[in-house]
Design a protein around this nucleic acid. Sequence first.
RNA 1: GCCCAGAUGGUGGAAUUGGUAGACACGAGGGACUUAAAAUCCCUUGACCAUUGCGGUCGUACGGGUUCGAGUCCCGUUCCGGGCACCA
Length: 949
Amino acid sequence: MAKEYNFQEIEKKWHEQWTKWHTYEVSEDSARKKFYVLNMFPYPSGAGLHVGHPLGYIASDIYARYKRLSGFNVLNPMGYDSYGLPAEQYAIQTGQHPEKTTYANIDRYREQLDKIGFCFDWSREVRTCDPGYYKWTQWAFQKMFGSYFCTAAGKAQLIEQLIAHFEEKGTEGLTAACGEELAFSAEEWKAMDEKEKSQTLMNYRIAFLGETMVNWCPKLGTVLANDEVIDGVSERGGYPVEQKKMRQWCLRVSAYAQRLLDGLQTIEWSDSIKETQKNWIGRSEGAEVQIKVADSDVDFTIFTTRADTMFGVTFFVLAPESELVAKLTTAEQKEEVDKYLAYVKSRTERERMIDHTVTGVFSGAYGINPITGDKCPIYIAEYVLSGYGTGAIMAVPAHDSRDYAFARHFNLPIIPLVEGADVSEESYDAKEGTVMNSPMEGKTSFKGFSLNGLSVKEAIAATKKFVSENGLGRVKVNFRLRDAIFSRQRYWGEPFPVYYKQGIPCMIPEECLPVELPQVENFLPTESGEPPLGNAQLWAWDEANRKIVDKALIDEKTVFPIELFTMPGFAGSSAYYLRYMDPKNGEALVSENNAQYWQNVDLYVGGSEHATGHLIYSRFWNKFLFDLGISSKEEPFQKLINQGMIQGRSNFVYRIKDTNTFVSLGLKDQYDTTPIHVDVNIVKNDVLDTDAFKAWRPEYETAEFILEDGKYICGWAVEKMSKSMFNVVNPDMIVEKYGADTLRLYEMFLGPVEQSKPWDTNGIDGCHRFLKKFWALYWDKEGQFTANDSEPTAENLKSLHKLIKKVSADIESFSYNTSISAFMVATTELGQQKCCSRAILEQMAVLIAPFCPHIAEELWEALGKTTSVCDAQWPELNEDYLVEDKVKMPIQFNGKVRFTMEFPADASKESMIEAAMNAPEAAKFLKGMQVVKQIVVPGRIINLVVKPE
RNA sequence: GCCCAGAUGGUGGAAUUGGUAGACACGAGGGACUUAAAAUCCCUUGACCAUUGCGGUCGUACGGGUUCGAGUCCCGUUCCGGGCACCA
């Protein structure tokens, strides 16, 4: 029988056993309550896992195992997000085909993951680049193409219903989310040819082909979604991004903006991530007002959230990209306007973001304020964005800082509208105060409308009401959330199941899916944006024979070109949680039975960096599938835990300038030194292994050291874990040296799951020592198994049940670090008690199983069990064992602890106060004093407030 | 600029939500065992004063406040992290 805690042997044994027993494979079992735990599946990047990656997986694994022990049927799947830019960029950098590198990376990931002892059901693995998987990505896209969003019903409906509406009434009474407001009659609809009809419907489809401004990244050779662009450069690679008008597939995410916002109230996510999504969705309620252009029959619409300030409008501003610019510009101003437009066009997105200097030009035209009747000049300026609202604003310099800066620059009038607001130096933007000058004294306004004397908030409401009642405009809600650009000019992604018949996009029939990614010789992207799929020879659709054929056969009558774009990275990751419920189903994305059983994800664990990407798209995608009746819950992820990042802890050596001599940290200030990153793997407790350092790199072979106390002490700093900082710690190495159970324990012991923290291998010894101590509860020094049938003592039971109480509560609240502390305390206690009771030791093994499954199995087996510890029962808490018969209470006088006393647990407040006052220690505090207040918090404190008599 | 979340020993972090701050662990110092090392075990470890004994004072970023009592609640300030940002 084993004596030493031989983790290597134990972990190998149980990994094999679990595979043999299919321990972690689950099936739908309507007799048992389900619980769905999910990790954000990884991109299999080339660098492999570092010690930070498994953090979230370990946290969710503990929860999954705990839930399983508590009697739930737990689904805990894993897979790979293997399509998209990261995988492809890696392939390009290493000069290999993305398919090859992706599969190699997946194997490497799997190997690493397997060492850590997760309870993943690998029989349900999905890979987004697998045709059997992306068939359903393509299928969902086609469903979106075949749907529109009905604003009256608040949900997606079949496009056929919209067509029927057009046939009958044209756009009259239409309630559909759309790109632009169109108006046509039934006759006009019927008179359209196929192409015009197709184009018209694109304005309503949820997946649509649109001519829009996109983020074009020439270096990556593709367009990017808004969340893939950060500070004007690409998230991946940091390459410049420019605005370009292109024909692209888009998803009408904006139609779901309100539902995406409302849904946040129904889910258990952190406030910060909800806040981030709220900001990203950016709802703002305001009014759209029609503005007539003087001496012309043109009019335009502005959007404002400050309807109350209409009396302070002194000019209007159009976005340079607005179609109105050409219509309004007068002949005299044309030259100047053109010059300005050319200037704006020359500026990159990044320049526009950083540089906020005031620029603009007068169009020559005047707009008429519908309430005051005043004629105000119309300007064109880049500070107004074409993509938001209507691309036109009314400017109120007194109460908007941007308008203020513009007015000052162009010497335009500023009319204050709030009593007491000083606008001589800056605008008054706050929505507070009493309204004045609305209208100004002696002036009249439309229908005698006046806001004077109201508070700003009342004035906003009153103006909205007035504007809509008098047909001057309407109340309107705007969202910052834009439609998602859904196509990429890259190779490594899902192909679109679309072909072009005389230029009209048509769907490849559902039965013919998936449309598999064709092999191409050259998959590199091009700066001009020619998609790599253009290099595919077998890439044409034979409509009659319903198959993919050589594109040489294209004849525009029966054989048509297939779409060359591919889908973006978020396509495959948007509904993968549904596929795990039924991963091998060839007939449906997920069967009704399985969707009903598993419902939605109960616990989702992943990084907060996906807040405005994946977590928005997924919610949108799921809502769409919910409208179709596929998904059984409106929100995909009920509870979300964002694990923090594990940062690296870098070490430094200090080289004296122009030498090869290195000086220890404490002495470095005496020299002129340069800090140099040193590999953390040759440093222990900040002490450098100098021999290893000499061997590390050739240039250090002759290195000399100035030591302190015979040691070379390194400096340290917390930085991102990355190869270039030499602070990457590989989990494989930790598993080899300490075992997976120690790794799991230590990752959780490091601190709260949701917090970012630096990795420091040094502390790991403490966790490893604990496991050895835990082991020693079962095996004594002579290698004898200690458990026997002796009755547990009251002390034993108390230690155990204290632990049950703490661990159960801590797992539920993801406070794993404190429950590990509790394990350490309980183990020490039981060790001191020399506890040999089988009843206690069995429960201890079950309690540790979620954290350290391997050692738990080994001990469970040693206890004579023949089934896996995973199938045991979570111990039940019996509070009776925790009841104290005596309580120690600190006695305070005037809020300060003076001494402590012991009382029977059931002592009354009065008797305790009396005893405290009669205690000999109390005498000096009571001398010449009288008690004015007595406070007793049972089990906590007794406080007597005294005052001189 | 707006919004959100933080700040506790040399280090990672606890504190039952207003009740003895610093659990647990690392590191450090001292000791035991050993020829020696490793491993293991024991003691000390927030600061300062007193250590001839119990002990005392100050301490949770800073400044105020509420309270018998504040790391925890309120007001103000500083610093770090995250989100949004010419969004009308």
